[in-house]
Design a binder for these strands. Structure first.
Lengths: 253, 253
DNA sequence: CAGTGGTCTAGACCACTAT
DNA sequence: TAGTGGTCTAGACCACTGA
């Protein structure tokens, strides 16, 4: 009768079947936060499998944050952490695609420049170092949504493809034109109001609220190799975060 | 001589020592993205440990996103994903603490109300359902930083503690006063400008750019049990995201 | 003390990859 | 075909918990 839960002859691994079984119990509320799971020995005996296989399944549940273990006591259903919130930035670009809109990047300007004092300081490089500078506007169905300005050191002197300038990924760009590999990235998200120039490019009125994001790319030696500033229209963009175990069910609310 | 790397007599588990060993190799760049790790059998033989212990260590590296495995081929160092960005909202409140400032919550208003049509629709409940409504201002060193308005259904009629009204966690509040348990949470982060009322409360001028966050708490049946709106001063708050493997080294830049 | 989860072993068979 | 990682077993000993 337990064969309905774990089929040892299935191509699906036993540990995965077991993981899904408990996941379902928890998501459905049959196992409530604080409830104890059966002991590993009990589970192994009930399904006639090895304790190591049981532990593999429980390990997956722990990784998913759905249970926690306490040495000498047992394994318990965790409380969903509704307060630790993460906003996934992919939203900014994915949102366009999800709505079935066509994303398009327009190159406004692209130049090789020699770093002046301000840029040299910002990039942590020497003055007059050759840099690649460019600006793009990202549109969806013809409407401007974001305005990005980017700088990266240009030490490799490899050819610049227009396609890569239209790619919003600053780290890919740095990988192509810096002589070191991008290793870390820092982004700061702020609110601001559009400057005259930004308002003109985005086709909004001056003082419209916008998201302002500044990104810095570092190599393995923690040297800055790229810097970018992005302005997102506040009337078109938003970030959404879902937490908990029933997330799929509320996404369309 | 390998004993310097893995000490089988240490109280630290072997798999963890091995995990740290490879983590160090990767962070230091001695193992570059794309490089293959030794095979599991090789590692087991070199350190004279069981293959299962090696697999445990590699499993940790996989969980950390530092390596990936390919059946029949081997295990390889992953490329850090610098494009998938997450902003951790805890920033909003942690930032205050991190700066050594004292957070304080001031209760502006707290009432039990009967839901009017607008609120009933927003909370997905019947008109005239009893709800707890309140507003707070969060200050740091006396300066207002955030303004929050919250509603939750009030079915348990349990006493309301002023301390819990000052806790910024909407899910904790819903847990106390709703007759069902919070299960999922949805948050939407937008930019806006302060309304007259918000500007007055926060002590900023009208039309100052602000973060606007709306949170909805659901129970296991996907019924809304709480709703809240938070206004964060744009001139005081920012969200920061770090990606990559050298993150600790760039946090102070 | 008995029971729990944490670690570890020395095998085994499998599916997949490349040659 | 040989080599890889993926799964699984049936033990073992340990540290920790609570009675």
């Amino acid at each position: 009768m337990q064969g309905e839960i774990v089929d040892k002859n299935s191509v699906i691994p036993i540990y995965y079947q077991l993981f899904k079984y408990f996941e379902k119990q928890i998501r459905s509320g049959q196992l409530q936060p604080g409830d104890a799971l059966p002991t590993e020995m009990e589970i192994a005996a009930r399904f006639d499998i090895s304790r190591m296989t049981v532990r593999h399944a429980i390990g997956e549940l722990v990784s998913a944050g759905m249970v926690y273990t306490q040495k000498g006591k047992g394994t318990f259903v965790a409380r969903p952490r509704l307060d630790s919130v993460v906003f996934n930035l992919n939203n900014f670009y994915d949102e366009i695609r999800q709505k079935g809109m066509k994303r398009h990047s327009e190159l406004l300007e692209a130049r090789i420049i020699k770093a002046d004092e301000k840029l040299a300081k910002r990039l942590g490089i020497d003055i007059n170092t050759r840099c690649l500078y460019f600006r793009i506007v990202i549109t969806a169905d013809g409407e401007p949504l974001a305005y990005e300005t980017k700088y990266t050191v240009y030490t490799k002197r490899s050819p610049i493809l227009e396609s890569e300038l239209k790619d919003p990924s600053l780290s890919n760009l740095a990988a192509s034109h810096s002589d070191t590999i991008p290793s870390s990235s820092k982004r700061v998200l702020m609110v601001s109001t559009a400057t005259e120039e930004e308002a003109a490019v985005l086709g909004v009125s001056h003082d419209t609220p916008v998201f302002l994001m500044v990104q810095t790319i570092y190599n393995a030696e923690n040297k800055i190799i790229a810097w970018g500033k992005s302005i997102f229209r506040g009337d078109r963009y938003k970030l959404t975060s879902y937490e908990g175990w029933n997330v799929e069910n509320i996404k369309n609310n």
